[in-house]
Amino acid sequence: MTIAPVVVSVRVGAPPDRAFALFSRDMGRWWPHGMTIGAKPHAEIVVEPRSGGRWFERDEEGTETSWGKVLAWEPPGRLLLGWQLNSSFAYDPDFLTEVELTFVPDGAGGSTVTLEHRNLERFGADAEKVAASISQGWPRIIGRFEEFAGVPSAA
C-alpha cells in the first residue's frame, strides 16, 4: 500500500550547483521560522555534506535536535534525505521517510528544484506501531487513510 507522495517544484534563477548549495548549506537561512521542532528557535539547520551525514537543527546555545540523515549526497543534481520525525514529530532513528531533491537545469541558466517526500504510508505504520497492542482495526483505517490521502489536494 502506498500513499501519494508530496511533490513540490519551484523554479530558481540559480543553476543546479548553486541551487544545491543554497538549499543544503544554507538551509537554516531560508527555512521558515517556527517550522522546527527544537525547544528554542533554530540558529542553523545542518545538512552534513556527505552520504551518511546527519541532518539536524541547532539553536543559539548549541543544542542540537536531530531530524534525520543524508542518504545520498550527489551534487549538483540530487540530494536524498531521510526524514526521521515520526507522526508525533519526535526524532526516531527506527523511523524513516525519504525526501528527495532534484536540481535540473531549466535551459535558461536557472534550475527547477523538485522535492518529493515519499513513503508516507510509513506514518500509518508508525501509528500502527504506536498502537502496538492492537492487531485489528488498523488495516481498515490505513485503507481509508490511503483513500483520503490519495485524493489530490484541492490547491
Partner: peptide
Amino acid sequence: WRAAMTAFARFAE
C-alpha cells in the same frame, strides 16, 4: 513543504 520550498525559492532569488 509548499511553504518551505516557496521560502527557498525566495531566498535563492
